[in-house]
């Protein structure tokens, strides 16, 4: 009986996107440990819907929705990522060595997504669990309607940070252009900083000297006519 290969290589110049996803999914099912994707050329929907454990290495840029709707996977992107990398990730680990576009880890439910560069608007939007680390800056509406999980942002954050968040925690080392409705800055306990530092170290990243901790202030949890000033902007 032929032994299952531990590694395989797929060249995007040689297979269609449809076939590529099928090969990755089948490989994961067969127990192949790692797949190297050559020439991804920022194509959309690479590595979508994979629910068996596999490590995917992208040797270049990826387009929309890379590694999305997946579970148990790990991936490294040696390049930049398009919109919504890691969208709805259930569990696993994704590392982007460059920048990521908008909606990074949108509605992620678990696992860890690391962007070593910056990430665009709506980063971590509707986050439902897991950890998102961004080495650089994040854009407008980051953490909008966040529900659970945590975001660690080493650079600056754009306007409407954490707007309408239900729960979860955002840590920002740099400047915050504007806090969103229902978000507030609270004191960062030393043990939490230590946990952030340790988590980042695991990805070869050095944590900034301090972070602001942003949480939901609960004012938008239940309507209160006495807080019209807050509610008029969200209802």
């Amino acid at each position: 009986m032929e032994a299952v290969k531990a590694h395989m290589t797929i060249d995007c110049n040689e297979v269609s996107q449809k076939d590529l996803n099928k090969i990755i999914a089948d490989s994961a099912k067969q127990g192949i440990k790692e797949v190297l994707i050559k020439n991804p050329q920022a194509k959309h929907n690479l590595g979508v819907g994979i629910t068996d454990p596999i490590h995917i290495v992208y040797e270049g840029d990826v387009g929309y929705y890379a590694c999305s709707l997946s579970d148990h996977i790990s991936a490294v992107v040696h390049g930049t990522a398009g919109w919504a990398i890691g969208e709805n990730l259930m569990n696993g680990e994704i590392v982007v060595e460059g920048n990521a576009a908008s909606s990074t880890a949108a509605s992620m439910r678990g696992g860890t997504v690391v962007v070593k560069g910056s990430s665009g608007a709506r980063t971590g939007i509707g986050l439902k669990g897991g950890t998102l680390i961004v080495g650089g800056n994040v854009g407008y509406m980051t953490g909008f309607m966040m529900q659970k999980g945590r975001m660690i942002i080493c650079g600056n954050a754009g306007k409407a940070l954490g707007d309408s968040m239900y729960a979860g925690t955002i840590y920002v080392a740099g400047d915050i252009a504007e806090l969103g409705n229902g978000a507030e800055i609270v004191e960062l306990p030393a043990e939490e900083y230590e946990e952030i530092r340790s988590t980042m170290e695991g990805y070869g990243m050095k944590a900034p000297a301090s972070f602001k901790k942003i949480v939901c202030n609960g004012m938008l949890h239940n309507f209160n006519k006495k807080e019209f000033g807050v509610w008029k902007t969200v209802l």
Binding site: A84, I125, V234
Partner: peptide, 13 residues
């Protein structure tokens, strides 16, 4: 028990 409001736009398109 929160008054749940959900977004009008999709998060990723």
């Amino acid at each position: 028990g929160v008054d749940q409001r959900s977004p009008c736009r999709h998060p990723d398109w």
